[in-house]
């Protein structure tokens, strides 16, 4: 996977960022027709479309977008395990959004401010992601500080996904970022939102004992294989066809 992209673009990094966006977009797309209220159908689809747009640009930097999305095996994907986690209930989706979009926004802001190969893309995407982050925060507050039921669901979702948040701050080859500072900012921001949402900060470890936290190395969780099977089957059933 080294010679496929333009010489100036670090392919590993393009795949890491591109796969994050692609996989999360896919998960959000699964909400279509199932959202808790019609207005939220529109909101979730907007976020999914933003992410898919980012994914297409990023994957195109690394090669052919469709070949990369549809013809790679599970072990070749470089996305975080966090984004491949199933939607669960709306609280799980919002917790996943909160953790990821906070990370993505902080990272993209840093990339946009630099002069690396991802700066132009990050400058555009960071505006979209700012909105995703805002959407996640607004809903975290409402679910956390809404009813007893919603509080409990939000709390348990935040806890369940906590162990997937450590992997976000492993340095990615080709991305110039101050990972330690990024992590500190992330922690500060998430703590603040959860605090306002009356949700206790989860206490467990931020990485799992064995594979949790290894998405960047191509180790994924079981649900991811099924997700890819569904996503890729039609494309793979017609080798060489164009759509």
């Amino acid at each position: 996977m080294t010679a496929t992209g333009p010489a100036t673009v670090p392919v590993t990094a393009a795949l890491a960022l591109g796969d994050d966006a692609l996989v999360l977009s896919h998960r959000l797309g699964e909400w279509a027709g199932h959202a808790p209220v019609l207005e939220e159908e529109v909101a979730l689809a907007n976020i999914a479309l933003d992410l898919l747009g980012q994914a297409r640009i990023l994957l195109s930097l690394a090669g052919d977008e469709d070949e990369l999305a549809y013809l790679r095996e599970e072990r070749a994907f470089r996305n975080l395990q966090l984004v491949e986690q199933p939607n669960g209930d709306f609280a799980h989706t919002i917790a996943r959004q909160l953790y990821f979009s906070t990370y993505q926004q902080l990272l993209y802001a840093e990339l946009a401010a630099g002069d690396g190969p991802f700066a132009p893309l990050a400058a555009k995407a960071v505006k979209e992601v700012l909105y995703h982050r805002d959407h996640a925060e607004q809903w975290t507050l409402r679910l956390g500080d809404g009813t007893e039921t919603s509080h409990e669901r939000m709390r348990s979702a935040c806890e369940a996904l906590w162990k997937f948040t450590g992997e976000m701050f492993q340095p990615v080859e080709g991305l110039e970022a101050d990972w330690a500072r990024l992590e500190a900012h992330w922690q500060e921001s998430v703590t603040d939102v959860l605090d306002r949402a009356t949700i206790p900060l989860p206490e467990g470890p931020r990485t799992g004992a064995w594979s949790a936290g290894a998405g960047r190395q191509g180790l994924h969780t079981e649900p991811f294989g099924r997700m890819l099977a569904e996503m890729q089957h039609l494309h793979r059933s017609h080798p060489g066809a164009s759509w």
Partner: peptide, 13 residues
């Protein structure tokens, strides 16, 4: 707050 955001998604997409 949510009205504004919903409006943004619905009427200015």
């Amino acid at each position: 707050e949510l009205a504004l955001r919903n409006a943004r998604d619905l009427y200015t997409r």
